[in-house]
Simulated scan of single mutants.
Amino acid sequence: MRWSRIAPQLALTPALVITAVAFVGSIGWTIYLSFTRSRRLPEYGIDWSEWGRQYDRLFRDTGWEISLRNLIVLGLGSALAIVFGFILAAMIDKEKRGESFFRTVFLYPLAVSLIVTGAAWRWILNPTLGAQSFLRSLGWDVDFNWLAQGDTAMYAIILASVWQSAGFYMALMLAGLKGINTEIWSAAKLDGVPLWRVYVEIIIPMMKFTFITCAILLSLGVIKAYDVVVAMTNGGPGQSTWVPAYFTINALSAKSNLGYASAAAVMMLVITLVVFIPLVALTVWQQRKREAAR
């Protein structure tokens, strides 16, 4: 009996050790290096008279300021994926015919990596080969060269990101809609309540946990966004599409400044915690509130 209680703990020990070393240890190592003058190779001595040198330089860097601004734009724009995901889920849920087909079609972009997604959309937005050329061949005088203009390049990245992830959020929303009691729909129909009011006043509040889950996953994806930026613009034109992840990798690879890249990575961790912890706390609070009401 005693062995049956110890065995699961022993089985989990390797995973816990790997997590402690590879995850927690890496975070601690990165935080430590952010206080050093490490360049191409790590230096473990800290000059305590200038221990915050890397962070002071980071906060005065125009590239970092642009990265944070683009992060906000990308986060707000990518939230459309949740909106479109809910709309698609509602349409599929109401129209039973062809549900499996449409669910597969909308989920298909998720099977494509962000690198491939970025490359495909770079081709679509190519003025000589993509959408602009096609529309002009039909006689429409349009300018669809978003990637070449600094003020529209981020919108092109948002468009590609929403296209790639909307199907995933649709699947989550569809699972949430399937869990709603069908009697609610019947009662609303008998009372003559408009469909939009049923969604706004009943269905969406009942799916708040699904929306919070989607928000958590979306925020984590936006903060670590890198692949699609590299594939579509490689940070250009200029620095117009830099995001924190791109800034960090650029500081490490192009500038060969390990200490500076570590400081940027630590700030990315801080941003993640600032966004992630309130959402998780809200989820826990809502769950306890539901359990207390039972």
Rank of each mutant, 00 (worst) to 15 (best):
T128D: 15
A131K: 02
G236R: 08
A188L: 05
S262G: 08
I124E: 09
G235K: 01
I277K: 00
Q132H: 11
F102K: 11
G118V: 01
A11H: 05
M232C: 10
W146L: 15
A265R: 09
T36I: 02
V83H: 04
S219A: 15
T104D: 13
T36E: 03
T30I: 11
R136L: 08
V105R: 06
I204W: 09
K94V: 11
W48M: 13
T13S: 15
L218H: 13
K189H: 11
M170H: 05
D151I: 00
W121M: 03
V230E: 06
A15T: 09
Q54I: 01
M170Y: 05
G25D: 05
I216W: 07
L129I: 09
G167V: 10
S253Y: 10
A264V: 00
I202M: 10
A119C: 04
W51L: 12
F209V: 07
F102N: 08
F106K: 00
P194R: 02
Q132D: 10
P14N: 08
M170V: 10
F102V: 07
V243H: 01
N145Q: 05
V17E: 02
F84C: 11
T117L: 06
V24F: 13
A119T: 14
T248G: 03
I115M: 14
N126C: 05
Y44A: 12
N126S: 14
F59Q: 05
F211I: 10
L107S: 14
A175M: 01
A231T: 02
F134I: 14
K255D: 07
I66P: 05
A265E: 02
I157T: 04
P127H: 06
L273P: 01
F134E: 13
L12F: 13
R290K: 13
F209C: 03
S219M: 11
I203L: 14
I66L: 13
M173N: 08
L33V: 00
S137K: 12
V229R: 04
S4M: 13
G118D: 03
F59E: 11
I180F: 06
M170D: 04
M207L: 15
K178H: 11
I92N: 04
T30A: 10
P8D: 10
M170L: 12
L80S: 14
L68S: 08
F247T: 03
E99H: 04
E99P: 00
N145F: 07
L147H: 01
E65L: 15
N70F: 09
R290Q: 15
E99I: 02
Q239V: 14
G75R: 06
K255R: 12
Y246W: 10
I271E: 12
F211G: 07
